[in-house]
Amino acid sequence: MNFAEKFKTLMNNLSANADFLVAFIAGVVLFTVLYYILIKFLFDNNSGWLVAGFTLLAISAAFVFAVLRIDGALFLILPAVFFVCITVLFSVELKRIVWARRNLKLADVKKGDGRSYDEEKVDNCISEIIKALQNMSKSDTGAIIVLSTDNVPSQIIDSGVKLDSDISSELIESVFFPKTPLHDGAMIINDTRIVAAGCFLPLSQNMDNIPKDLGTRHRAGIGITETIDVVSLIVSEETGIISIVKGGKITRYADSGMLRKTLTRYYWKELESARK
C-alpha cells in the first residue's frame, strides 16, 4: 500500500474502531507529556536549538518513512536515541534535579515540625556568617561555605570532619585560619548548624567559562552548585573578594547587602513560598 492508502486506512480505523481511537489518543497524550517535559528542560537549559533540530529531524524522518514504506514501529528509535543523547549531554543538570530535595525551613516549624529555632536565631546566624565573611575578606583568608538544604551527599560530608555546632563568626574564622587542619576544604552549613568542615567538593566541569584567575577554591564552589541545588559563599585568598555562586553562576564583589539578601532567602525561601 502507498502512503495515501495507508493514511486512509488509519482514518477509517480511527472512525470505525473505538478501541483503536482510545489507544491512539492515549498514545498522543503520553508522547505529548514526554515531549513537553523534554522541550521545557531543553529550553530551561538554553538548548532550544536542540528542540528545533529534533523537530526538523522528526518531520524529515516521517516523510522518509512514508515514502519508503518502512515499518512505522521503527520510527520510535528516533525519540529513544534522542532521549539517550539528552541524558548523556545533560547528566550534570539531571543529577541536580534528582538530588534536589524540599527545604525544611520555618514553614515546617510553623506547622509543628519540632525544630527549635526562631527568627532571632536565624537573624543571629545570618549576622555571624556575614561578619565572618567580611573579617576573612579583610585579612585575605580563603574560605568556602556551602549553604545546603540537607541535600549534600553523605560522601562529601564524610570527606571532611563533622562538627554539628552552632554558627558563630569566631568558629568560622578559626576553621579557615591558614595552616589549621580544616582550612583547606569547604564548610557545610545546614539551617542553623555547621555540619562539617574540611570537605572536598567536586570541581566545575565548565573549563571554558571560568576565567583563569579563579583558582581551585572557586572551581569547587562553582562545581558543587552545578551538581546540587546549594549556594556557595567564597572568599578569595588572593584578593579577599567575596563571591556568591548559585546554579553554576558566580557573582563577584558581593557586599553585605547582597550577602544578607542571599542568606535571608536561603533561610526564609520556603516560608515565602508557603505564604503565597
Partner: peptide, 23 residues
C-alpha cells in the same frame, strides 16, 4: 504563552510519532 508554545510543539511531535507508528 511560552508554556502554550511548548505544549503545541509537543502535541505536534506526538501526533507525528503516533501517526507514523500506526501507519
Amino acid at each position: 504563552w511560552k508554556r502554550v508554545g511548548y505544549g503545541a510543539l509537543a502535541l505536534f511531535l506526538a501526533l507525528i510519532t503516533v501517526t507514523v507508528v500506526c501507519l
